[in-house]
Amino acid sequence: MATFSYPSIAEPSRILLFDKDKCVGCNVCVNTCSSDVMIPNPEKGGEPIVLFAEECWFCGSCVQECPHKALTLIPTASQRISTIWRRKATGEEFRMGMLDPPEPNTTPPVGRNH
């Protein structure tokens, strides 16, 4: 693969992870974003392109609207390394983005709007 010339881009590097098995390139996420940080992929059905990652304020609306549940919102590394919790009984420490995380907690919010 060719090595391209790129300008240096400040953080964040990746704000969204698209599940390749689920994303059908419907662009609902593109059109949900009020800051317009994505553009459709020129290839029909391809996953959208994140063009203005730094303008994302991490509201998560695109994740909520994705009809295929293909999106994961990725906090910046500085936010992942600072969001820490401790298991009270064992003293173990965890954080967002850790290696070998514990099982996800699937407890839903209360109420009916989820």
Binding site: G60, R87, P109
Partner: peptide, 21 residues
């Protein structure tokens, strides 16, 4: 909802066992 509630739980945060720093 997504950045805190869903993301922390996806990484295993369980308020019935855990303490948030």
């Amino acid at each position: 909802r997504v950045p805190i509630f869903e993301n922390l739980q996806a990484w295993g945060f369980d308020p019935s066992q855990d303490m948030l720093q």
